[in-house]
Amino acid sequence: MLALVAAQGLTKRFDAHVAVDRVDLEVGAGEVLGFLGPNGAGKSTTMKMIAGFLTPSEGRASICGHDVTEDPIPARRNLGYLPEGAPLYGDMTAGAFLAFVAAMRGLSGRRGRAAIGLAVERTDLAEVLAQPIDTLSKGFKRRVGLAQALLHDPPVLILDEPTDGLDPNQKHEMRALIREIRPSKAIVISTHILEEVDAVCTRAAIIADGRLLADAAPGDLASWSPLHNAVSLTLGARFADAAAASLAGLDRVETVQRGPAGPDAARLTALSRDGGPILADVGLLIQAHGWEVEDLRTETGALDDVFRRMTQPDGEAPGHG
């Protein structure tokens, strides 16, 4: 697959501080890469470099094969970019602003109007086109920013926190839109909302302290969680002690965690030793002992669990770097 977005050894230093440290990335058509990381991890700095706004200290980035520093204009033609916070010219009306961007993109006359029409339809902006951007709500502003990025139907989209500040309905619409345009484009979005990654991304990259720690499908990342394939069961409190001991005795069970579930119930979670399935073993045990089980389920492992483990090593509080 041809990589529409590529970065090799991308590094940005601000004086002594290394904001982004040798990041390698490739994103092809049809992929949505979700950029995850705590605040200050280097997500935005990386995106600014790929968008050609910041010059990398080392390494290179390219869009559709055009180096963003050496060949910036062709690279930018292929790029739709929503900067962090969606900055817009507040004194312009939404319509005038989109017309300006269309003109700058070389879309004039009928093509310009068609492009604006399509972007306005996709982002549902028709009702506010005549209003100054400063008077719009945060959700509308974000959508104007997105419309601006989509205007020229670029093969590459870089969206820095596209759903930040949107209400749940708007978030849902934004994700639906990203899924709709996904097949033909390479899209990079940053977010710290992990459910968003599951909802729209085909790949997730975790970045912390400027370093790329993981780059895999969201499901694969989740499987790195110790909870992956763990079995949780809720059963009568009187069985709890015996059940915990029996479960811990299984070969393929690493440990058993115990939590409260109700006045007369207990919740036990058996963690798989090798991440493999253990439900069958647990099921046999339940039948053999005749425990009254109210609820039984296999855990898939949570992305946020993996995220937390990767971005705060040794359980330290984040934000020290």
Binding site: L79, E84, P87, R105
Partner: peptide, 14 residues
């Protein structure tokens, strides 16, 4: 100040 420079200078303009 408003950050629009990031939008402006990532348009295809030298």
């Amino acid at each position: 100040k408003t950050g629009t420079i990031e939008l402006f200078l990532t348009l295809p303009v030298s």
